[in-house]
Simulated assay, not measured.
Amino acid sequence: MKVLILCTGNSCRSQMAHGFLQSFDKDLQVFSAGTEASGKLNAKAVQVMSEIGIDISGHTSDSVSKYLDEKWDFVITVCGGANESCPAFVGNVKNRVHIGFDDPSHAVGTDEFIMSEFHRVRDEIKEQFYQYYLENMKGK
Rank of each mutant, 00 (worst) to 15 (best):
S65A: 06
K71Q: 07
A45M: 06
S61P: 15
W72G: 08
I52R: 12
M49W: 05
I76C: 07
S50T: 12
S57H: 14
D69N: 08
G80N: 01
G80W: 01
H59I: 14
Q47P: 00
I52L: 11
S65K: 12
G80V: 02
G53L: 08
V75M: 04
V75Q: 06
S61C: 14
H59Y: 13
V64D: 08
V64T: 11
H59L: 14
C79D: 03
T60V: 15
A45E: 01
S63Y: 04
V48H: 06
I54L: 14
S57Y: 10
I54N: 13
G80A: 02
D62K: 15
S57M: 09
I52W: 09
I76T: 02
D55Y: 12
T77D: 03
I52T: 11
Y67A: 04
K71A: 06
G58F: 10
E51R: 08
D55M: 11
S63I: 10
D55R: 14
A45H: 06
I56W: 14
V75S: 05
S65P: 00
A45F: 06
I54P: 14
E70G: 00
M49V: 00
D73A: 00
C79S: 03
V46Y: 01
Y67S: 05
E70T: 08
S63P: 07
D73F: 00
S65W: 05
K71W: 00
V46H: 01
K71R: 08
S61Y: 15
F74S: 06
G53Q: 04
S61W: 15
V48C: 07
A45S: 02
I56Q: 13
G58E: 13
Y67E: 10
D69Q: 03
S50N: 10
W72I: 11
I54W: 13
W72S: 09
K71L: 00
G53K: 07
V46C: 06
V75E: 02
A45Q: 08
K66F: 04
G81N: 12
S65L: 07
S50F: 09
I76D: 08
C79N: 03
D69R: 01
V64A: 07
K71T: 05
L68T: 12
W72P: 10
H59T: 09
G58K: 15
K66N: 12
V46K: 02
V46F: 00
D55T: 15
S63H: 11
D69L: 02
C79I: 03
Y67D: 08
I56L: 11
S50M: 09
I52F: 09
G53Y: 04
T77V: 10
D73W: 01
D69P: 00
H59F: 12
A82S: 01
I52S: 10
